[in-house]
Computed example of a mutant assay.
Amino acid sequence: MKKFLLLLLIISYWGCEKGMDDYRNAKPASEVPVSTYDFLKQQGDLYDTLVLLIDRTKLTDTLKNQTVTFFVPQDISIATALYNLNFTRSKLGYKGNWTLDSVPLKVWDSLLRRYIVRGVVNADSLRYADGTDLISLYGHAMNGKTSGTNASGAVNGGTQLVLYSDKNDSRFSKDWSVATTQNVDVKTKNGMMHILESKHVFGFTSFVGKAFPESLEPLQGPFLGYPIPIPGIVEAPDYDEGGEGIAYHDNDKGNTGGQYRNEDVDMENCSEGNTDGGSPGGRYNVGWTRGSEWLRYTVDIAEAGDYKVEIRVAGPGGGIVHLLIDEVDMSGPITFPDTGGWQNWQGVFANVKLPAGKHYLKFFIEKSNFNLHRYIFKKI
């Protein structure tokens, strides 16, 4: 029985003299006299990893003795998922050395069950325009749908394959994650198998997020890719990456001015512009400010000591702000005057004592009726 399915496919291929593309989608002469589990185990290294995970997640009895349909992911699909996981970890500054054992067992269990549905589901039962909604072992919503292949120029004149989709909790097909079968309708003693293509990534789009939840958090760090040096100019629009509550707080949704960044901080073109050849953020100003809003910047302070900071502001109502380093108030209240217009820019000065090294600089707005362009730090 070892590699029984593969032998059947080879016989079908040579007997019909099909091209390789037709062979890839070919429907096997499809019945094996063993359980789904035993068939996979007999394939040796084709499904070694998959069988190991089945055993660890206690799905052995399900695939041996219960009537189920298994949309079978190949070992290469699992290897690809692990590669993607380690790539993501390394990009976010973690060690990219995770193995099967590093991933919590509940993740393997939860995702592996998405490939198994109760009862016998063959391709003929999925021949509907919108497919057939299916429920996995843990009650997750899936969908199965047949799709024709082309043969010798005839549209849908070739063999049928199945599109097996994770609905991602959405009724709109545009949000679904789709896996394509390589072979369909392999009948076993206790149900049915459909073999997924090797290019399918295990877990659809959920594996990395479930195995490594940190990957779902907003990207955090300096917006420019490096800490902003002090002494120097900190452009107000160049606040950190990280999103609401991490890199900024804004009291209303959306960027009212619609410029520079697609977040909730409001920005517009600045008449004062960027005359010093610095960051592109210098061409814009933060506007529509309100009390309790704040912006955070990762800065690298060259030397501890006293600095003079010039804050460039414009507005008819003035305001009160504080500068904090690592959540410690370094400035006390800084009061802004009425400058006579939303683009009538004026410098407001304050002295602050700063520590050396990399720190978070926070600009906190206590009272507001002004636009904000930049902060200019000079060592005293």
Rank of each mutant, 00 (worst) to 15 (best):
W176L: 09
F204N: 00
H200G: 09
T205A: 05
G203D: 14
D169F: 11
D169H: 12
D185I: 06
G209I: 09
L126Q: 05
S147V: 11
S125P: 08
M142R: 01
S136Q: 03
P218E: 06
K167A: 07
G148S: 11
F202I: 01
T180R: 14
T146M: 05
D166W: 01
K210F: 14
D169E: 12
K187W: 05
Q182Y: 10
M193I: 07
A179G: 07
F172R: 02
S125K: 08
F204H: 00
S198K: 10
H194N: 02
G131I: 10
K167T: 08
F172N: 09
G221R: 00
N150V: 11
T181W: 00
T205C: 09
L134W: 04
T188W: 00
Q220C: 07
V184L: 02
T188V: 05
A179M: 03
V186E: 06
G131V: 06
Y128G: 15
N168E: 01
P213T: 04
K145P: 08
K210A: 14
Y138T: 07
S152V: 10
F212A: 02
A154C: 12
K189H: 05
V155A: 15
S173G: 10
T146N: 06
H194P: 03
D133Y: 12
A211T: 03
Q182S: 15
T159I: 10
K199F: 08
T159F: 15
G153T: 08
H200N: 08
L161H: 13
G158A: 11
N190F: 02
Q182D: 08
S152I: 15
S198D: 02
K189Q: 12
S136I: 01
K145D: 04
M142D: 01
Y164H: 03
A129L: 13
T146I: 06
S173E: 14
K174Y: 13
K199V: 12
N168F: 05
T132N: 07
G144P: 06
L126D: 02
L196M: 04
F202A: 01
S170D: 10
P213F: 00
K167N: 05
A129T: 14
A179H: 01
R171D: 14
G157S: 09
T205H: 09
V186T: 07
L163I: 09
K145G: 09
A211C: 02
S215C: 12
A129C: 06
N190Y: 04
A141T: 05
H140E: 15
Y128K: 15
